[in-house]
Simulated assay, not measured.
Amino acid sequence: MSALFFAVLSEAKPWLTKLQAKPLAHSGKFRIFQKESHYIIISGTGKLSMALAVSEFSHLLSKEKRNQMKVWNLGIAGANSSELSLGEFFWIHKITDFGSQRDFYPDRILNSQFKKETNLNTFDRPITKERGIDRFLSLTEEELQNINLVDMEGAGFFEAASLYFPLENIALGKVVSDHLEGKFCQTEDIETMMAKVTDDLFEEWISPLPWAHVDEIDSIDWPSVETFIQNLRLTETMRHDLKKSIRYFRLRHPHSQLPFPLESEKINLKTKTDLKNYFDQWREILHV
């Protein structure tokens, strides 16, 4: 089972052709195509549209199906550096929502034939290095420092998908479409660039998740975690995020002992900020 989200039809077209997917009859807002247990969803541009599309699609599935589904967002992205070649494909290992400055960390694809990874910044408007171009947000070299790729959907996709799907089921990949010259890509160029990676990625996308039927978190790890956190007053969101991080660790290290932060440091947790820092450090250990 797999789901693939695109912003626009030109990104999705090579995949729709390859999959031979047909439109799904449903009462929702977004276009959904299906072939057997594989789905392609087109959201429209922008992180809000993408997040709503993820939510709408998720509500068509049972929790059991969501837990077994591979969920990807693919598409084009502008590159800050000319060293990143047009048509080059990158998996995304860090997403920054430029508006909120929130960071997200997608799972790394370990067995893909595409090996390159980089970071992605999601903006609310198209980005350019040039000045005075209508409909584009102009950024200086200083503002673009440490930014490799930019898009308008990645953060919205990941934040929404992580509410409905296990963290390790979610991945993002981007094809370099431009170098922020302030020009919109032509439809035929987008289709050509996406088609060049479709054949190689297709089998990876439709293959089942190796852990689709394995989840021992509740029975093995969570009881000891519950004992450790019983006096920490974590919010429900924090507990939810912690469980996802523990699952991530267990899948990567099936025979290792689950790491815990220092018990002695609990006495120093006087404020919500102290607790958040303690919690974030624990999750960071789990993602090593």
Rank of each mutant, 00 (worst) to 15 (best):
S2I: 06
A3K: 02
F5C: 07
F5V: 05
A7Q: 03
V8N: 03
V8W: 02
S10R: 01
E11C: 03
A12R: 00
K13A: 09
W15E: 01
K18A: 13
K22P: 01
P23G: 07
H26M: 10
S27D: 15
G28H: 05
F30S: 03
F30N: 03
R31M: 07
F33A: 02
F33V: 04
E36I: 08
H38M: 09
I41K: 01
I42H: 03
I42T: 11
S43A: 15
S43L: 09
M50T: 15
A51Q: 05
A51S: 15
V54L: 07
V54S: 03
V54C: 10
E56P: 03
F57P: 00
S58P: 08
S58W: 11
H59M: 11
H59A: 08
L60W: 10
S62E: 14
K63Q: 15
E64M: 06
R66K: 15
M69C: 04
K70A: 07
K70R: 13
W72F: 15
G75I: 00
G75R: 00
A77Y: 07
N80P: 04
L84H: 11
S85E: 15
S85F: 13
S85Q: 15
G87W: 03
E88Q: 14
W91Y: 14
D97H: 05
G99A: 06
Q101I: 02
F104R: 00
Y105T: 05
Y105M: 02
P106M: 06
P106A: 09
I109H: 07
L110M: 14
S112R: 02
E117M: 11
N119Q: 12
R125E: 13
K129M: 12
E130R: 05
E130Q: 14
R131L: 12
L137T: 09
E141W: 08
N146A: 09
I147D: 00
E153Y: 05
E153D: 08
G156E: 00
A160V: 04
S162I: 10
F165S: 01
P166A: 02
L167V: 09
A171I: 03
A171D: 07
K174T: 00
V176F: 11
H179Y: 12
H179Q: 09
L180W: 05
G182Q: 03
T187S: 14
I190W: 04
M194G: 02
M194K: 02
T198F: 01
I206L: 04
L209E: 08
H213F: 14
H213L: 10
H213R: 08
E216A: 13
D218I: 06
W222K: 04
P223Q: 06
E226Y: 04
T227P: 01
F228W: 06
I229L: 10
Q230F: 12
N231R: 08
L234D: 05
T235A: 13
M238N: 11
R239C: 15
D241R: 11
K243P: 02
K243Y: 05
R247A: 13
F249G: 01
F249P: 00
R250D: 08
L251W: 10
S256G: 10
L258F: 08
L258K: 02
P261W: 00
L262N: 00
K266Q: 07
I267K: 13
L269K: 00
T271S: 14
L275T: 09
K276G: 00
